[in-house]
């Protein structure tokens, strides 16, 4: 990746992270940790990889994204807003009665959202169907499936993975957001996950593991996955829940954060100020 493109994607990631912080801070609560761990992936997808047209969100011959860990809706909405699917003002309506941006993604409400998710595990199978449909229609397009590591507790994920791998559905690229934490604590303590790379390889996936905040590495892994036509493809993202904002990375319970105490409020305000400063500098 050349420096110009990297700068562009770093700037986009900063904007997405700022949007997530601003909308959750405005709302007073929300799924912060698992949204922030996906910021860099969203920047690479929406800033570089996806064949989509925000002016025509229903364009049939397009790449699709399925955010199976639906509680990370805020980061998807932020990426969609930055890509121009809808006005950024919508972000402040998260969870309002009648909003187009419900806590969990809804394909009937939000331009750019192709599949409704929230009941964990279900997005995996839907992504299979979408990828199959792209192939049946002869479209040379990708379905990018994003699952959480906590979500992998759900058996349906493994049913879908077996299908993707067994049928070599190589246009469905699976991302595992390995942020190592879930609602009640660390994944290793809740339900020991073993080694995702070894598990996915045992299923038959060509599996890569990259740092989830490394834009160049994520982009390179996607290119490698696209080039591999011999098997299904998985990219494990080694991420941090609350990624990119030290205070929230270190906050013990950061799955859903409430901005109702001085420390959280101060940290959010500082993060917002820092991100704004970084963006202003980059844009100048």
């Amino acid at each position: 990746m050349d420096k110009v493109e990297l700068k562009k994607l770093e700037l986009l990631a900063a904007k997405i992270r700022l949007d997530v912080m601003e909308l959750l801070y405005h709302r007073g609560y929300g799924h912060l940790g698992g949204s922030l761990s996906l910021v860099e992936l969203m920047a690479v997808l929406y800033g570089k990889c996806l064949h989509v047209d925000p002016a025509d969100p229903q364009m049939d011959d397009r790449d699709m994204v399925v955010l199976s860990k639906g509680h990370a809706g805020p980061v998807w909405y932020s990426a969609l807003a930055e890509r121009g699917y809808f006005p950024k003002e919508w972000l402040m309506t998260l969870n309002d009665g009648g909003t187009n941006l419900p806590s969990h993604p809804d394909r009937t409400k939000t331009p750019g959202v192709d599949m409704t998710t929230g009941s964990l595990g279900q997005g995996t199978s839907a992504a299979v169907g979408i990828a199959l449909g792209q192939k049946m229609k002869g479209q040379n397009r990708y379905t990018y499936l994003i699952v959480g590591d906590g979500e992998l507790n759900e058996g349906q994920c493994w049913e879908a993975f077996q299908f993707i791998a067994g049928k070599k559905l190589n246009n469905c690229i699976v991302f595992i957001d390995e942020n190592k934490r879930q609602l009640d604590g660390y994944t290793k303590d809740i339900l020991y996950p073993f080694d995702y790379v070894a598990k996915m390889e045992a299923f038959g996936f060509h599996t890569q593991k990259v740092k989830g905040d490394d834009i160049e590495a994520i982009a390179a892994a996607i290119e490698k996955a696209q080039a591999n036509k011999d098997s299904a493809n998985c990219i494990v993202l080694d991420t941090i829940k609350g990624q990119g904002i030290k205070y929230f990375e270190e906050l013990v319970s950061n799955h859903s954060v409430k901005f109702n105490n001085e420390a959280n409020i101060k940290a959010a305000e500082e993060a917002i100020a820092n991100l704004k400063e970084f963006i202003a500098k980059e844009e100048a």
Binding site: S125, A126, V128, G129, I130, L132, M136, K137, A160, F163
Partner: peptide, 16 residues
């Protein structure tokens, strides 16, 4: 894998 089958059907529906 009936749950997977229903989800795959839903995804195919998304594609029309």
């Amino acid at each position: 894998a009936e749950a997977d089958m229903v989800g795959i059907a839903a995804g195919l529906s998304v594609k029309g």
